[in-house]
Simulated scan of single mutants.
Amino acid sequence: MVTSPPGAPRDVEPRLLRAFVAVSEELHFTRAAARLYVAQQALSRDVRRLERELGTDLFVRSTRQVVLTADGERLLPYARRVLAAQDELTAAFARGSAAAARPLLVDLNSPGLVFGRVLERARQLVPHCELMARFESGLTGAAAEIAAGRLDASFGRYAGLPAALRAPLAQQPVRYEPMAVLLPAGHPLEALDEVPLARLAGERVYAGAGNDRTLEWTDLAERLFAGRGIEVAPPAPLAVGPEEFARIMAKHRNPVLAVVGFPGMPGAVLRPLVDPVPLSPVSLVWRRGLDHPGLDALRRAAAELAAAEGWLVRPANAWIPDNDALIMVS
C-alpha cells in the first residue's frame, strides 16, 4: 500500500495525469506506453510517482490484468478535465505560432490505404491544425522531397532508402503490412483464396520497375522473388487512377505485387500471399528536427492504432528482410 503523505499536493504535473489517463483507458501498461510513444518503464514510474504524490493506490496490478481502484475511478474525471483544459490552452496559443499556422503536408501514396486512418485520427487529436494529404509518391520520391523541405511526412519502407537519403530523416515503425497479389480477372490463380508464393513461379509480377519514385518497393519485390523463380515484370506505363490502372493491367496481364489493404480495382481480384507470409514494413518518416503539433499528432495516432490493432506483431511464418527487421525494432 502507498504511504499517504501529510496533506494533498499543491501541484500535479500534467504528464503524470496523462500517463494515468492512458493506463485507465487502455487497462494495459504496454498499450498505454505505445499510445504515448514512451517506454513502458517510464510510464510505470510516472504512475507510481502520481500514486505517491496523491497518497493512494490508483490501480490494482496483476500478471493478468490492470484494474482501477476506487480512488482511481474518483480521480479519472478530474484528470480528464485538467488535461482537456491544458490541451485547450496549448491549442489557443499554438494557433498563433508559425509552426501550427502552417499546414502539415503528408504523402499517403494512394487513396484507400491504411495510412489514411492514421491521418484521420491525427486530425481528431489536433483539430486546430491543418493536416493536408496528397497521393503522389512512393517513399523514395517522398523522402527526397521531405529532405528538401517540400513535404513534411510520408509512410513506407524506410530500410529500402539509400543511406544518404535516410541521413536527414527520422522514422517511427507503424505496421507490418501483409503482402498480396492483384490478379487480372480470369487468371488461373484467381480461384484460390490465398496464393502460396510457390504458385507464382514462372510468373512476371509487376512491382513498380522503372518508377524511380518507388525504388524501395521494387527492391523489396526483388528480395522476395529471389530464388523462387518469380520475375519482376518489366516497366509499364505509370497508370494514374483506377480506370487507367485497370486498362494497363488488362493489356499486360501481369499480376501486381500489392498489400492486403490495397483498394479494390475493376477487372482484378486481390489475394493474400502465404507460405511464407511476406511483410511490407511500414514506417512514418519525417525530417529530423521538424517541430509541428501535426507531426506529434501523427506519431501519437500511429502508436495508438498500432497498439490497438497489433500492427507491429509479426504473424507466424512471416518473411521480412533482415535489415528491415532490425530497423523496425530500433
Rank of each mutant, 00 (worst) to 15 (best):
H252D: 11
A268E: 02
D296N: 11
F262K: 05
P255L: 10
V260E: 15
I230K: 00
V277E: 02
V269Q: 01
I230D: 00
V285M: 04
L284Q: 06
K251S: 14
V274D: 04
P235M: 05
R271I: 11
V282D: 03
D275T: 11
P242N: 06
G229R: 03
V259E: 01
L295T: 01
N254F: 13
A233R: 02
V256Q: 02
M249L: 15
P235R: 12
V260S: 08
R247I: 10
G294C: 11
G289S: 05
D275K: 12
A239L: 08
M249G: 10
P281K: 11
V260F: 05
I248W: 02
G289L: 02
L273V: 10
L273Q: 13
P237F: 06
R287Q: 13
P237H: 12
P272V: 10
P255F: 04
N254G: 00
E244A: 14
L284R: 02
W286M: 03
V256C: 00
V260N: 08
V260C: 11
P281N: 13
V240W: 08
P281Q: 11
A236P: 00
A258F: 04
P276V: 10
N254Y: 12
G289Y: 00
L279Q: 09
P276A: 13
M249D: 07
A239F: 01
V282S: 01
R247Y: 02
L290D: 03
A258I: 09
G229N: 03
V256L: 13
A236W: 00
L257A: 05
R271V: 07
H292A: 09
A297R: 03
L279N: 07
A268L: 02
D296R: 14
V269C: 03
P255D: 09
N254P: 01
G264Y: 00
P281R: 13
L257M: 10
L273C: 11
V274Q: 05
H252P: 00
V232D: 05
R253D: 06
S280N: 15
R287Y: 05
P278I: 09
W286S: 07
R271A: 04
P276Y: 11
G289D: 04
P235N: 08
D291M: 08
R287M: 03
L257N: 03
P255V: 13
V259Q: 02
A297Q: 04
A246T: 14
V285Q: 01
V282F: 00
P234S: 08
G229L: 07
R247L: 12
L284A: 12
G241W: 07
P278Y: 08
A268Q: 04
P237M: 10
A246D: 10
A246R: 03
F245M: 15
M249H: 15
R287H: 13
A246L: 09
V277D: 00
G264S: 10
R247H: 06
P237A: 08
L279R: 13
F262Y: 14
V277S: 00
V232N: 10
K251I: 05
S283Y: 01
V240K: 12
R253L: 14
V240M: 11
H292I: 13
L273R: 13
D275P: 02
G289V: 04
P234Y: 04
E243P: 01
R287C: 07
